[in-house]
């Protein structure tokens, strides 16, 4: 069993358990909401964009990022330790020969603490089931037309790691400042469903 996530029944059970815990004084009123707010605070695609731009501008940072993303993002003041325990981050980089795209076929695993909540399409059954089978067709529907000889690597976040893509730096951006470059990077680019 891997794909059954009926939401209504489990949501009801969770609310019931929450109410019981509050009644018995094991949980303060609103404590769960506060914990979730703390977890999401600071999570935004801007974090990913800052990491990407640093990798574009600094080849050493780029290489360290691909080898050990958790340690390397601390150099720009970010971390994957926003939740109960630090999650492993795996960063993959696009280049002329290869394009990477991320999915979680089993549910919707995503680096939330770093990038904020995932887009709704990322959680849709259509994206999750189709991008592993026909990534070129799905990317085409997102408006991304890759050259026929570009290899496509799909990453299925099926276990404990979370993933982020470093898009290719657009041509014609040589004179751009760091903040101008950050403005070019989109959430779709960080997932791999857009060029940048």
């Amino acid at each position: 069993m891997s794909g059954d996530h009926g939401s209504a029944a489990i949501a009801g059970r969770v609310r019931h358990v929450e109410a019981l815990l509050e009644q018995r004084g094991l949980l303060d009123d609103g404590e769960i909401d506060r914990r979730i707010d703390e977890f999401l605070a600071g999570g935004s695609p801007i974090n990913g964009a800052r990491i990407v731009v640093r990798a574009w501008l600094d080849a050493g940072f780029h290489d360290r990022l691909l080898a050990d993303a958790n340690a390397t993002i601390r150099e720009v003041g970010l971390s994957m330790a926003g939740g109960l325990q630090e999650q492993r981050l795996k960063v993959v980089a696009n280049n002329e020969q290869e394009h990477n795209v991320v999915v979680c076929t089993l549910c919707s695993c995503y680096p939330i603490a770093l990038l904020g909540p995932s887009p709704s399409w990322y959680k849709s059954e259509a994206y999750r089931s189709r991008v592993v089978r026909d990534p070129r067709g799905v990317l085409h529907e997102f408006g991304l037309k890759l050259p026929a000889d570009t290899r496509i690597s799909v990453w299925d976040a099926s276990a404990e790691s979370r993933y982020m893509v470093v898009p290719r730096r657009p041509t014609g951006t040589d004179g751009f400042s760091e903040s101008e470059l950050v403005g070019l990077v989109t959430r779709k680019g960080l997932i791999g469903t857009a060029a940048v």
């Binding site: 795996k90 592993v132 089978r133 026909d134 990534p135 070129r136 290899r151 496509i152 690597s153 799909v154 990453w155 299925d156 976040a157 099926s158 276990a159 404990e160 790691s161």
Partner: peptide
């Protein structure tokens, strides 16, 4: 836990991409 890379052709019978699963 390992990153294991599969050829699309081995998973689905066709395709030229790879899928890396954990």
């Amino acid at each position: 836990v390992y990153h294991v890379r599969f050829a699309a052709a081995d998973l689905f019978g066709d395709g030229t991409h790879s899928v890396t699963v954990e």
